[in-house]
Amino acid sequence: MGRITLDKVSKSFGDVEVIPPLDLTIEDGEFTVFVGPSGCGKSTLLRLIAGLEDITSGQIRIDSEDATNVPPAKRGLAMVFQSYALYPHMSVRKNIAFPMKMAGIDQAEQDKRIDAAAKALNLTDYLDRRPGQLSGGQRQRVAIGRAIVREPAAFLFDEPLSNLDAALRVGMRLEISELHERLKTTMIYVTHDQVEAMTMADKIVVLQAGVIEQVGSPLELYERPCNKFVAGFIGSPKMNFIEGKEAANLGATTIGIRPEHISISTTEGQWKGTVGVAEHLGSDTFLYIHADVSPNETMTVRVDGEFSARHGDTVYLTPRAERIHKFGADGLRIE
């Protein structure tokens, strides 16, 4: 079981309140991602749940038991760190065995679990190596293995993929998702990468300056961002924002339209502009356009497949009306 409840939890360092009181419930078996720009308090929040930092006020419950003052060792949670935090002086086997050794699990059971974890994570051939002799991806897997064998109530991941190169990151992302499907254990995953959030999460928690901006499934956040910040943060490439008359016509201070929800034509359309840069990826074409409606910021347009355009070409853009997001002066969504 692994239902984690935060009840009016806040955190201050000295006089600085990094997390104002917040409530959050993470259901058993859920894959929850904390996402936000760096310094938004997402790692701090994870460390509060882990017990590596004291909360300043409020209560943390794990499976409805008050864990607020329980030391990290006793919370039954496992954590995978950004730097992997493997024990450099121990072999992979000993690294994975360490939490079981601390828990006093007998040797036969330890070996059984190590073998199972090693098999699942493709580490069987590396059990007698030291972490220093492994590649980044392998180290990551050892860290995960060390977490699995404890059979924790929940896994905590602190930006676990940020030290890997791009190709490896995609692979590990899939592995972690698959692991979750298999174990059905609660996972809390911290990242600044919204792609990771979108692809992995059951539930995304968007944080900014210690405040929860929105909680929801990836598609809810994509389709109905509750404010300008979430709208801009979720989705790639970023949503285009247009202010002024065009927005006022629709009864909003700002309107937002995603690059994939704009159609482009060389002959006619709603908004006129000139092409700044065109990126041809084959599968898609990204166009960065200086449009008349958005004089201060270039607009991004995504076209499926190839679209031939060059710097300086005049193009016309048409947003899909039902996909326009409207925001008021306070940045909140207008329905």
């Binding site: 882990a50 030391p71 006793k74 949670l77 360490f98 601390m102 060390r146 404890r150």
Partner: peptide, 13 residues
Amino acid sequence: PGEILEAARMDGA
């Protein structure tokens, strides 16, 4: 790195 000691703490040490 402090993270390694924290990892030990999380591991129940």
